[in-house]
Design a protein around this nucleic acid. Structure first.
Length: 579
RNA sequence: UGGGGUGUCGCCAAGUGGUAAGGCACAAGGUUUUGAUCCUUGCAUACGUUGGUUCGAAUCCAGCCACCCCAGCCA
């Protein structure tokens, strides 16, 4: 629906738009013929949680940059820590990436499917004197590591003969040691100012089964050992990651350079290729931060567990799943990521940018309809009871290709309570007692009498329609206001969920905030029952609408249920009226 | 007090020695049967700061300041 136009959209995957330092880098590599014209990136999520808008930035970057240069992007689950991972996450991640509109190169990859090769390379490193089995416990090893200010000390096992380490490593693999009893470490420099270079652990013992490899292994490689090698095996040319990995780049390079290049190539996808073989290069960029939202995996989990939201796909969550249920379109998310740019500066993007992206897409693509949130009955005296005037309204004010729909007008209609005022503020241009307004797409009506109940609440407006105002301006006077309405006899009752930002403060993750619950927006969800929507909304298969003057809405829940349909408000319309 | 980064409009962000793009937000007009959209206009003598090099610096050099990341057998 929203993606149906054939015109090249700015947010289409791979469409060239902005420029940034990573593209500059790739262009230069291409000009120099560095990789024989190849560009290959990868998106390497660990399947230990749900994807959020921050991941979307990385996904868009990796996939679109590859597409733009005629390359490909691999999807590789970086599953080296089975304790935290599960199949549930790999499934949802794949689903989210496809929904965003991207297609990965070939089959899904797993770091775990390279475990055999990784094990061989580890042995190679030991044999060449670049790694050793260390018997220090995790606690001891922490002591030996030193601090930011002080150098570390060498492990007593550091100079153990390669043959001995080889034998020990084989025993580690065979399951002869308990967890934490020993580990495989790189032999680099315990006095390096970069702590990552102080003989980092390459393999640790974990007697647990893995979601992909089952009980085949009881030793698992670490991120640092795995990532660079799997990149190299897959022929990745540009390994893009976030800024916090910058300090790991020397290690990334150290491991690859300590291995035999020929054997890496022989094990890689380029083994039989004529293409020059060049090791991958890691490049870091700033991750996305959004104000008024928490992005930390841990924090999001807390909100789910504490029931502050209904789940990972609660429409207020910044998860892809949540935003999808909220009504965001794939194109809007892609456009947003594009507009945010890519740099090395850690900034905080204003939520307004995201809101602009979704409004921009929905304004162009969402058909219009009318929905009255808080119904106030209006009786139009000069429309006979039982008469149904079928009006034909455009689905979009500017795009005729979106067609028209029939909207029934009857003697009794509903308008929104907020569109009628007894004591209007200056500038109010909707209906007042004795005044006139335009019913959108229909006649100008005049309010003659206001009926109240015993408590003084307005319950019915007696009006008349100027039958000479359909499709034309009233004669002799100006009627400024236009309000939406729905036939009281033909309208359908629906439930509406009005969503707003979850937090009241710009940075809910700030350190000085004791409890995030203190900054929750109490009005982040307002449930409205008894709203009335025009019948055309259920006539097609479309799920996204602009309810005129209210905002953009997305049909949620069981679509086959005829009882009480639910619409989530994706975003309001911009409202420049102070009131 | 170690190492690695970053500092251009309220927010993102171009710019890579020749005299400050763009988007968001905001403001003012115009169009409008959505107080929407759309259109027009405005919005940094200024690039963290202090010096230096140069005919000329946001761009080069030096010092200073601020902020971010690193001491998981997490990624």
């Amino acid at each position: 629906m929203t993606n149906s136009t054939k015109i090249k959209q700015s947010g289409e995957p791979g469409n060239q738009l902005s420029s940034h330092f990573i593209k500059t880098l790739i262009s230069r590599d291409l000009e120099e013929g560095k990789h024989g014209g190849r560009v290959r990136t990868r998106f390497p999520p660990e399947p230990n949680g749900y994807l959020h808008i921050g991941h979307a930035k990385s996904i868009c970057l990796n996939f679109s940059v590859a597409a733009e240069y005629g390359g490909q992007c691999n999807l590789r689950f970086d599953d080296t820590n089975p304790a935290k991972e599960s199949q549930e996450y790999v499934d949802s991640i794949k689903d989210n990436i496809r929904w965003l509109g991207f297609e990965w190169n070939g089959e899904v990859r797993y770091s775990s499917s390279y475990f055999d090769t990784l094990f061989e390379f580890a042995n190679q490193l030991i044999a060449s004197g670049h790694a050793y089995v260390c018997n220090l416990s995790p606690e001891q090893s922490r002591e030996y590591r030193g601090t930011l200010m002080e150098a570390g000390r060498n492990s007593p096992d550091r100079d153990r003969p390669a043959a001995e380490s080889l034998a020990l490593f084989a025993k580690m693999r065979a399951g002869e040691f308990a967890e934490g009893e020993c580990s495989l470490r790189a032999k680099i420099d315990m006095s390096s100012p970069n702590i990552n270079m102080r003989d980092p652990v390459l393999y640790r013992i974990r007697h647990i089964s893995h979601h992909q490899t089952g009980d085949q292994w009881c030793i698992y490689p670490t991120y640092d050992f795995t990532h660079c090698i799997t990149d190299a095996l897959e022929g990745i040319t540009h390994s893009l990651c976030t800024l916090e990995f910058e300090d790991h780049r020397p290690l990334y390079d150290w491991i690859l350079n300590s291995l035999d290049l020929k054997s890496i190539r022989a094990a890689s996808v380029l083994a039989d290729s004529d293409s020059p073989y060049v090791l991958p290069r890691q490049t870091e960029f700033a991750k996305l931060k959004l104000n008024y939202t928490m992005m930390g995996k841990r924090n999001l989990r807390t909100m789910v567990e504490e029931g502050v939201v209904s789940g990972w796909d609660d429409p207020r969550m910044p998860t892809i799943a949540g935003m999808r249920r909220r009504g965001f379109t794939p194109a809007s998310l892609r456009n947003f990521c594009e507009s945010v740019g890519v740099s090395r500066r850690e900034g905080v993007v204003d939520l307004g940018m995201l809101e602009h992206a979704i409004r921009d897409d929905l304004d162009k693509h969402a058909p219009r309809a009318m929905c009255v949130m808080k119904p106030l009955k209006v009786e139009i005296g000069n429309i006979p009871e039982g008469d149904v005037i079928q009006l034909s309204l455009a689905n979009h004010p500017k795009d005729e290709s979106m067609g028209r729909r029939d909207v029934p007008l009857t003697r009794e209609i509903f308008i929104d309570r907020s569109d009628f005022e007894i004591d209007p503020l200056p500038g109010f241009k909707r209906l007042i007692a004795g005044g006139e307004v335009r019913l959108r797409g229909a006649y100008v009506i005049k309010c003659h009498h206001v009926e109240r109940d015993s408590r003084g609440e307005v319950v019915l407006l007696h009006c008349s329609a100027d039958l000479d105002t359909l499709g034309k301006k009233p004669e002799g006077r100006k009627v400024k206001g236009v309000i939406h309405w729905v036939s009281a006899t033909d309208g359908k009752t629906v439930s509406i969920r009005l969503y707003d930002r979850l937090f009241l403060v710009e940075n809910p993750e700030a350190k000085d905030i004791e409890n995030y619950r203190d900054c929750l927006n109490p009005d982040s969800l307002i449930e409205v029952s008894g709203a009335v929507v025009e019948p055309s909304v259920f006539e097609g298969s479309n799920l996204r609408f602009q309810f005129e003057r209210e905002g953009y809405f997305y049909r949620d829940g069981d679509l086959t249920a005829t009882e009480n349909p639910v619409f989530n408000r994706t975003i309001t319309l911009r409202d420049s009226w102070a009131g």
